[in-house]
Structure formats: structure tokens, C-alpha cells
Amino acid sequence: MRDVSRDHGTGAGLVHALRNVSLDVAEGEFVAVMGPSGSGKSTLLTLAGGLDTPTSGRITVAGADIGALGAAARSALRRRAVGYVFQDLNLIPALTAAENVMLPRELDGARARRARRQAHKALASVGAGDLADRFPDELSGGQQQRVAIARAIIGDRRLLLADEPTGALDSHAGEEIMRLLRSRCDEGAACLMVTHESRHAAWADRVVFLRDGRMVDSTPGRTGPETLLEAG
């Protein structure tokens, strides 16, 4: 993202949700965004995913300038390159875990048999291979979130956008989700996560702080092993 701003409303009701934010997320990098409510965290995420367009500035995903694409091309890029994990999981109750995971591929026109194979692979990679034929209401909160992450990564999508992905999970289930996102990044995916929990943000390579739509600070990026020694 380069100098991205997003305004909502006009005149007296004008709100600067985001002001001149520049942010890069490299392949294999895990970036967490923190800030108080109304600081622009969720706006940042919807812009990065092409679900909304900036008032000014430029957003590039996997080499493509989102603003320069037409609506159809933008939504194709979104489906092909970007995976979303939201707090409210949005699994469809009438579909099994595998069917939920394969849905985005089917919407993209993939053949059912191929989509199902990819769904099983994605489920296995998040440690949920044995849950494929269960319905969402037969799964715990942590298991549902695993399925949602499998859906986000199916077809090898390289950019993961996560909005409070640990939601109401207990601390153990929340940590499992963090380990999962961390290992996806270690395998080369890029992940941008919004959270208000510093304990979860700390799994990221870099933590950026938003306030009133501006980026006010950031921890340094990945560091060598020598800094680990300071931890004790």
C-alpha cells in the first residue's frame, strides 16, 4: 500500500478512516495491526483485500494494481490470491467442512472433484483432515476456525487477511490458530492480521500501531537470533 487514504461521508459527516498509510507485507511475512476501536484497522484490511477502494493512494496485490482493475478482474484476483479469515466464521451450516472449504474453488469454476481434492489437502495442512465430513455445528470453536483457515488457503492463495481470527476462542485454541498462521507464513504465505490481543500480535514478525487512521509506530521487522537472547 502506498499513501492510502480512505474517507467516509462528506461535509460535516466526513470521517478520515485512514490517512496516508504505506505498508508492505512481504512473502513469508506475518504482520499484525493493533490500535483502539475506530483507529482504521478493519478499513485497512478491507482495502488490502480489494473489498473496498481507497479515496487516494495505490494498493498492489501480487503485482496487480487493484485500483486499475475492472470489477470482474478485481474479484477474480480476490478469489485467486487472497484468503479471508474473519472473527465470525461464516461457515455455511448446511455444508460439511470439506464442502465449505471447496466452495471458493467451485465459485471460481473449478471442477467439483478437483475442488474436493484441494479441500482435503487444505484441511489436512491445518490439522483438520479428520473433520472433512462434519457439519459446522458438530465442531468446536477452534475446529471451526481451522476449517475457516483451510478455506482461506485453498488453491494455494498467498495472501491471508485475518480480522480478529481468535475471536472468542479460549487461550489454548487461540494459540493453536496463531501457530497455524505462523507456520503458513514460514512456508511462504503473507499474512496481515488485525487483533486487539497483544499476546497474539506477538506471533507476528512485525506489529504496526494505528491511531486515528494514521500509522503511529511499528516494531522492527524480522530480527536475527541474537535478539532472542535478550528475552531471558
Partner: peptide, 18 residues
Amino acid sequence: VQAQRTATLRTLQDLTRV
């Protein structure tokens, strides 16, 4: 507050890496 929070989060990141 912000300077302290960034420093504290760095510590938290280091502990989490361990």
C-alpha cells in the same frame, strides 16, 4: 505510552519466538 508499548511488544515478540 506509545514508546513503552512498542518496547513492551518487542519483548512479547521475543518471548513468543522462544
